[in-house]
């Protein structure tokens, strides 16, 4: 039962982006297209699962004094692994994610889950937590990326949705840097309104 709870909490109640406001840098940077969001989400989820697994497995062996450096090494190892595998088998995606692949290392969600959850929970729960957080992060990115790609380019996952007439005069700002900030601001505000409604009813 607690396994399911650990799995699902990351998707809504403790969504790393909308509720905890973590991992903002890749979240804002790679959401120019849904494809990039999915790629980054998959990479981050993989690293999250692997690091949570190892940290939880060795949680009684790693001395607490050097635990943060150890976590960083573990995370950096898996990030480099993803980097190399993606470069070999998905070169186009690797190219468009660019510098944000090595930067998964400093994604606060991953270190945060290692330190805040895997550090003191059994292996299975830690993996469930990682999967939930990974899905939550990916979903959040897809939501923002959908708005940005649709408004800024008229497409969704590279499918032309709004037609070529729209594509000639799209709302370009959505896909540029300011659009990421402004749309995220509205999404957060909207989720606050939902939360208040729910709170009011109880």
């Amino acid at each position: 039962m607690s396994l399911i709870k650990d799995l699902t909490k990351g998707i809504y109640h403790e969504n790393p982006v909308f509720k905890l406001v973590l991992g903002m840098c890749p979240f804002l940077a790679v959401t120019t297209s849904v494809e990039n969001a999915l790629g980054m989400g998959a990479a981050a989820t993989f690293v999250l699962i692997c690091s949570n697994f190892l940290v939880s497995l060795f949680r009684n062996i790693i001395p607490s004094k050097v635990r943060i450096p150890c976590y960083i090494v573990i995370i950096a190892t898996f990030v480099t692994l993803v980097d190399m595998v993606m470069n070999a088998y998905l070169p186009d995606l690797h190219r468009s994610l660019g510098i944000f692949i090595p930067l998964i290392v400093v994604n606060c969600i991953i270190l945060g889950r290692a330190e805040g959850f895997a550090n003191r929970n059994p292996v299975l729960n830690s993996i469930a937590d990682a999967i939930g957080m990974g899905i939550g992060f990916t979903l959040a990115m897809v939501v923002l990326a959908s708005f940005r790609e649709l408004l800024g380019n008229g497409t969704w996952l590279n499918f032309n949705i709004l037609g070529s007439a729209y594509q000639n005069q799209p709302l370009l700002i959505a896909i540029l840097a300011p659009g990421a900030f402004i749309l995220l601001s509205f999404i957060l505000g909207f989720s606050n309104i939902l939360e208040q409604r729910k709170g009011g009813r109880q």
Binding site: P178, F181, L184, S185, F186, L188, G189, N192
Partner: peptide, 23 residues
């Protein structure tokens, strides 16, 4: 500030407007 936008949301909005300026 409207209550729903207090804190982080309005901070992102401000960042967005600054970002337009930097554009």
């Amino acid at each position: 500030v409207p209550p729903a936008m207090k804190g982080k949301p309005v901070a992102f909005l401000v960042a967005g407007i600054m970002s337009i300026a930097f554009l």
